[in-house]
C-alpha cells in the first residue's frame, strides 16, 4: 500500500490522473466479480430489434425492477424484496431450463441496482443455460423509453 502514499501521488501527477481516470470509467468498481459473463449481456437495441421482428417466441423476458416496460415482458417486481424474489423463483419453477430467459431492471446503473444480482444468481442457480441480462447502462427511461423501443403500452 506504500505506493498510494500522499507523497507518491503528489510526486507523480500522471499516476494521479490514471487513478482518477480509472475511477471515472468505473474500471475499479467493475473489477468486483459479477454473477454474469460479458457474453451473457444483451444490448437494448438488439432486443428491441428482435421484438420488432417478432423473433421472441422462444424468449422469456422478465422485469425484476420497477416496471415491466418492455413489450411482452412479465412483471416480477423488484427482486431485492423478499416477496418479489419468491415470486420470481416460483414463476421460474415451471419454465423449461432450455428457454432463453432475459432479465432486466433499469432502476439505475448496474453498480447501484439491488435487483439484478439476486435475480441473475437465481436464474443460473436454477439451471437456466441461456440466462441473459439486458445491458442497461443508465436506466429504463434513457435506454428504452426515450429510444422509442417497443413497450407494453404501445403494443
Amino acid at each position: 500500500m506504500r505506493i498510494f502514499t500522499e507523497r507518491t501521488i503528489m510526486k507523480y501527477p500522471v499516476f494521479l490522473l490514471v487513478l482518477l481516470l480509472l475511477f471515472k470509467s468505473g474500471l475499479v468498481a467493475q473489477s468486483a466479480k459479477e454473477p454474469w459473463k460479458e457474453q451473457q449481456l444483451i444490448a437494448p437495441r438488439a432486443l428491441a430489434e428482435q421484438i420488432d421482428k417478432k423473433q421472441t417466441g422462444n424468449i422469456l423476458i422478465l422485469s425484476v425492477g420497477p416496471d415491466a416496460v418492455i413489450r411482452g415482458s412479465v412483471d416480477m417486481g423488484p427482486a431485492h424484496e423478499p416477496e418479489h424474489f419468491a415470486k420470481l423463483k416460483s414463476y421460474l419453477k415451471n419454465v423449461s431450463r432450455n428457454k432463453e430467459v432475459i432479465i432486466y431492471c433499469g432502476c439505475c446503473p448496474f453498480d447501484k441496482c439491488p435487483n439484478i444480482r439476486p435475480a441473475f444468481k437465481t436464474l443460473t442457480g436454477m439451471g437456466f443455460k441461456k440466462a441473459r441480462l439486458l445491458n442497461i447502462p443508465k436506466n429504463i427511461k434513457a435506454d428504452w423509453l426515450d429510444k422509442d423501443y417497443p413497450t407494453n403500452d404501445n403494443e
Binding site: 420497477p66 416496471d67 416496460v69 439505475c108 436506466n139 427511461k141 423509453l145
Partner: peptide
C-alpha cells in the same frame, strides 16, 4: 405513472 409522469418531462429528469 412511473417515468411516464408528465412531471418527469416538465423537469427534464433523466435519473433519480
Amino acid at each position: 405513472k412511473f417515468w411516464r409522469s408528465p412531471v418527469a418531462k416538465d423537469y427534464g429528469i433523466e435519473e433519480l
